[in-house]
Design a protein around this nucleic acid. Structure first.
Lengths: 206, 206
DNA sequence: TAATATATTCAACGACGTTGAATTATCGAG
DNA sequence: CTCGATAATTCAACGTCGTTGAATATATTA
């Protein structure tokens, strides 16, 4: 009685308007951030009623998550670039990829706004994990290092710290430091988190 | 004509009510954060009219900054503890102080909520600098290391990254890692930022 | 007392996210 | 084709928020 008994009623369309809403939402969220983007402005850009946005997405937060979801494709490249290559240069490569991603207008704004939202919206926090933690972790599962998850999250902590201080709060002189010098500064930290020994001076414990 | 010509009119009182508002604001902001704390709830706790809060503080953001301002006294201890002691153990001491500060209920909540607000409110970002960057920088000015500001902000970036991933977004396993192990993990990073050479493998350039 | 400055209150504005009912359009079943 | 069910879309409104401006009360000095 699943496919046999066909109910009457209008079938769900291809939802061209739903796509229009997502496009408008992605553009506005990326440019203005979560707070300064309003459901009403999204509706206006998509030429629909604000209530229609709610009908399709339930809430502003869910719309934000759906609109920023395409950014989940970014980590694929990161994971690929990380996997191939000498494990001893992994930190440098990760630092380079990450900084380049942030310097690029589009991807940079997405990461910044997802991070800004992550401090208040649990769904955005989950999205941030998907974008940043997963690729690092994925590149790890293949190699044989202990405490893979811990290493990945430690690297993550340094990376989000850079996003926060350099690209959001903009603390000098870190905010104006040339990209290549920044990479030089954080690469050894990432390298140690990824493949070094994690416990301070004492060797081989933990 | 400054002290001589006394103008008429009611003199500004000791503002017992203004103090009551600040007390209520500090309590609510610390417990509920910036977003979930409303001007109206602060006014209710202080038993005054919401408009009076605006009259004294101008805006919710300014009130937040004034209410969180006492936290500026925290860095003094940090700076003092950092200054005395072997520079070679500075990273470990900074990590220990910082983690302890965050594990303590009161101070931890303050730092977390100031950081949450800093991504949206410029004044809160400035307050965060005062709490975290200044003491490290101050402890530096006495010693003779190059690029003091850059070193301080690099350490800052790792510290706020820990706040974000461990205490706000709560990414595992970093969120559940015992304090002492966390300290062991980040201490070498801080140590290198503070007193090590900043450019990756190449020696003595930059 | 009269004038002036402060302390406090009241009512309202405009914007926001969200809701529920109403309307219109599209489909399958008889 | 007609009918009824379902989807698409709109409209008007609610409740809350930060904020404002006028109004009232109170204290102080000339």
């Amino acid at each position: 009685m699943d496919t046999a008994t066909k109910k009457a009623g209008r079938r769900p369309g291809q939802n061209k308007t739903k796509a229009k809403i997502i496009v408008a939402a992605e553009a506005l969220f990326t440019k203005e951030g979560f707070d300064h983007t309003t459901i009403r402005s999204i509706a206006k850009h998509a030429e629909v009623d604000p209530a229609l946005v709610m009908h399709y997405f339930g809430s502003k937060q869910e719309l934000f998550i759906e609109a920023m979801a395409p950014s989940q494709q970014m980590p694929r490249k990161i994971a690929q670039e990380l996997t191939r290559g000498d494990p001893e240069t992994m930190g440098f490569r990760l630092a380079t990829l990450f900084v380049c991603m942030l310097e690029a207008r589009s991807t940079g704004h997405v990461v910044v706004n997802v991070l800004k939202a992550a401090v208040r919206i649990p769904g955005a926090a989950a999205l941030l994990k998907t974008i940043l933690v997963r690729p690092i972790l994925k590149a790890f599962k293949e190699s044989t290092f202990d405490h893979a998850e811990l290493r990945a999250t430690l690297a993550q902590s340094q990376l989000v710290g850079i996003v926060l201080t350099r690209y959001i709060i903009k603390i000098e002189p870190l905010a104006s430091l040339p990209s290549n010098e920044l990479i030089e500064c954080i690469a050894p930290t990432l390298q140690r988190y990824l493949t070094g020994n994690l416990n301070g001076n004492r060797k081989e414990i933990l």
